[in-house]
Amino acid sequence: MSEVVQPASLALAVSRPKTSPFDWRRAVPLLLAAPLLIYMLVFYALPVVAMLLRSVNDPTWTLSHYATLLDDVVFQKTFWITINTSVTVTLGCLILGYPVAMGLVRAKSMAPFILVVILLPFWTSVLVRSYAWMVLLGRHGLVNEALLALGMIDRPIRILNTPLATQIAMIHILLPYMILPIANALRQIDPSLIRAASGLGSTPFMTFRQVILPLSMSGVAAGTLLTFVLALGFYITPAMVGGPRDITLSMLIAQQVDQLNWAYAATLSAVLLATALAILAVARKLPGVGNAFRTSMR
């Protein structure tokens, strides 16, 4: 966030010579953000800290909750399913989303229409969309009926309440998070570079490989990270359309809360949070991705 605030405050500081030791102008951005910061502190940061404390202070100071995770088979299976689902969903979003982003950027008069099609599901609640997928993927849903009518299957197949259903629904819900950063990066590519490549003897495919793809990597990195981290914490969709035995971390946490098993739920939450933060930290160190953060924020 500091990247967003800094340039503005710098510009203010540069444009006026400093007269007093404390420059009130510098404080303006901070003051403007203060109401939200206080709100976030009280209703977000404090509960998170309380939750983290609970994982090491229940009933007394102890790391035993973490230690038990090491040979907790349920946790390990859940963790693996969560990572596996997130990776699959992210890859699915990338493969389906990149061409759409290219289409969105290339389309001239159609662009607003494509954008609405991308964003329409975005404005619908996750709950509604998950219900919609239950209807579509059910035993007598549209997908099964269509496959039966086409004669590709003899009797309805089980799609709902399988990992596949979770993946299909999550890809659908997360696609805009992949498409928009990629489209943003593609839009920033100077069209004369593509002309130059063509003029210098590069076929359309070679131009894509050597110019468009490398220059859009910042968007790919941003979209991938965003999608992956959001997928890690998905709860409603896997709970509604996923299999009863394919439990993700967030489902396990909800289950433990229901059973008032607060310390275990807090420990799992801490692990989920740490995983997301670790991925972000590693990604920032990768060459090119750190720049992607800065460019996508500008």
Partner: peptide, 20 residues
């Protein structure tokens, strides 16, 4: 003929150098 088959050198107003 598409541009990439014409074998013509071209210098653009904004240079169009590949930044990466």
């Amino acid at each position: 003929m598409p541009p990439y088959r014409r074998n013509i050198g071209m210098v653009f107003q904004n240079y169009a150098l590949f930044p990466h």
